[in-house]
């Protein structure tokens, strides 16, 4: 597979074309805004946390390139049903994957379908596109921390 085909895998193209959970959640537990000033990528991430502390619903809206949009779309699917700890673990794994520090075929991971981003590290300028939604979601969860300590 060429580097390009590895970057723009069918799954990514497809999620870009038809992003999942691409909507606004009114009254979300947490809303965070992610912005990449160099690219102009701009997303809002909406997270609903249930009484049991698990993520019940995640959605996003905004504008971005195929990589950032597909990543956001797949992230929403991956986060639903996860606990906060599991979500953070997944973010850490995804971050390592995007930077080329984690090989999904060799290293232990819970990435599942997200492994489709394993070729992104070969495109250093695009790593930030792939992790934008994840950083945004984490900053929303950090707000949870701040709120819970008060």
């Amino acid at each position: 597979m060429s580097a390009l085909d590895e970057l723009y895998q069918q799954v990514i193209i497809e999620h870009n074309r038809k992003p999942r959970n691409f909507r606004v959640i009114e009254n979300a537990t947490y809303v965070a805004e992610g912005f990449n000033p160099i690219c102009g990528d701009h997303f809002h991430i909406y997270i609903v946390v249930g009484d049991d502390g698990c993520i019940e619903d995640v959605a996003f809206d905004g504008k971005g390139c195929a990589i950032s949009k597909a990543s956001a779309s797949m992230m929403t699917q991956a986060l639903i049903g996860k606990s906060e700890i599991e979500a953070r673990q997944l973010f850490a794994e995804f971050n390592s994957l995007a930077k080329g520090d984690l090989d999904p075929d060799k290293d232990d991971n819970t990435l599942g379908k997200l492994a489709v981003f394993s070729g992104i590290w070969k495109f250093p300028a695009r790593v930030k596109c792939a992790v934008l939604a994840w950083h945004t979601a984490t900053s929303a969860l950090d707000e949870v921390d701040i709120v819970s300590t008060e």
Partner: peptide
């Protein structure tokens, strides 16, 4: 198609352009 996707694909073909604002 977002300009950054255009830029990455063109780059792989050896064509160096600028993509952005």
């Amino acid at each position: 198609v977002h300009a950054h996707d255009v830029g990455s694909i063109l780059d792989q073909e050896g064509v160096a352009i600028r993509a952005g604002h």
